[in-house]
Amino acid sequence: MRLAVLGAGAVGSSVAELAADYGHSVTAYADSQSAAVDPDGIDVERAFERKETDGIVGEDDPEAALDGAYDVLVEATPTTLGDAQPGFGHVEAALQRDRHVVLANKGPVAERYADVRELERESAGTVLFEATVGGAMPVLSTIDDFDAEHITAVRGVLNGTANFILSRMGAEGLGYEHVLAEAQDLGVAEADPTFDVDGTDAALKGVIVANVLSDDGTEYTLADADVEGIQDIEGSALELAAEDGRTVRLIAEVVGGEVRVGPRLVPEHAPLAPTGTRNIVQLETEHAGRLNISGRGAGGPETASAVLADVGRLPELQ
């Protein structure tokens, strides 16, 4: 397949880098300012070098990437809330051209799921978004394989930064601020970790799962989620939990049409109490009990693997 990759951050650049490995070519690569476009395949290494030295990936305008020749648009620009622009506009443009779309950007499927599905119905293209939930972990495709109808609940640790902070607080008896600073030094937390620690990022993933599970056409957005973060968790709370063989984890829960994210007490050695940045999702199935999927929930190559797995699932365009 020919890929147009929008977004030159950790995920976009990894997709461009790994595409050849999966038997695909990159015919367009764009950041917010510039693009490299070539119907015969761009020189990915050259685009990386130019980004490094000149701050641009190529001589073309970003719009040229959207208009170029490709089979699959990989949308890996930063997640935005509300109208989910510019990501949503990119999805719209590709579907109107009857191209496929693979999303790493959570915005369009968390905030405008019904609109995306509507556009998809009118298009010959297909929209897949495995990478938006749980990074490398095959969460959405597993739900799809089991059939959403046979999944009664989904619970998980879907934010590595928050999980790292809580597990360090629990293990070392340290306070929130101290561990957050340490996480920032290690590069586990971003300079502005707001969306990770206030529960927004985990909630967006929960909302996407709720949209996929919804059997009556109910659409979910971030506004429908009940969200609590971990910023005001006292170190003493984790200590008390530990004395009782428990710990605290930021859990996203989708059950009975409700999306809820908040710190919860879980048994210390339970599957839902991973340590460090590890993510886990537990599917409660109708006929097969609980199914746990764990792995790396973030990172460039990890998330790019999920994107490329989606590309591999797409049908050939006529």
């Binding site: 005001d232 859990i251 829960e253 710190p263 007490l265 879980v266």
Partner: peptide, 13 residues
């Protein structure tokens, strides 16, 4: 006050 609830009513998940 802030409540940290158990996951699942029995907290056994």
């Amino acid at each position: 006050l802030r409540v940290i609830e158990p996951l699942g009513p029995g907290g056994d998940l």
